[in-house]
């Protein structure tokens, strides 16, 4: 009986694999979108979160003052110690933090997100894939 169960289970698992492989291959060929690194979120997804998102600007103060995403809070590593207090004051614990930097190869957003997670023990933090450039390109 157990053998029969396992045989049937294996059959179901393999049967499901066939369309999955076709679908996977088709989607791979169809769009070559760069995969997300751990902790990253795409702009489209963050947009759909709507009001639940709190943008965090990990760029320099000068860039932030020139322009930033709506409602973004400035928190970078250059001035972490001075910025962290106002950041914590403004931060709403019900919101999801999405950190961005310039885009391309900048890694400031990942560094700031890691510190928010580690030093402030705020778990709900993402990094915006493509950064500010992605937002502007839209």
């Amino acid at each position: 009986m157990i053998a029969r169960l396992l045989r049937q289970l294996a059959f179901v698992l393999v049967l499901a694999l066939a369309p999955a492989l076709v679908s996977g291959a088709w989607q791979l060929a169809w769009k070559k979108e760069e995969p997300l690194a751990p902790g990253e979120v795409r702009l489209a997804t963050a947009r759909e979160w709507g009001d639940k998102v709190q943008w965090v600007d990990a760029r320099s103060r000068a860039k932030y003052e020139r322009t930033h995403l709506p409602g973004a809070l400035l928190l970078n590593e250059d001035e972490w110690d001075t910025l962290v207090k106002p950041f914590i004051d403004e931060w709403d614990s019900d919101k999801t933090l999405v950190v961005y930097c310039d885009g391309g190869t900048c890694d400031a957003s990942h560094a700031v997100a890691a510190r928010i997670r580690k030093e402030l023990s705020i778990p709900d933090v993402y990094v915006l894939k493509g950064g500010f450039a992605e937002w502007e390109g839209k």
């Binding site: 029969r4 169960l5 294996a10 059959f11 179901v12 049967l15 499901a16 694999l17 999955a20 679908s23």
Partner: peptide, 24 residues
């Protein structure tokens, strides 16, 4: 993400096939 949904569909349909219902 590609495989799991197809497994759900396959298992759901296989529930009605006598020979595979136990596995499903």
């Amino acid at each position: 993400a590609v495989y799991l949904p197809w497994l759900e569909v396959t298992a759901a349909l296989a529930l009605f096939v006598r020979r595979f219902a136990l596995g499903a």
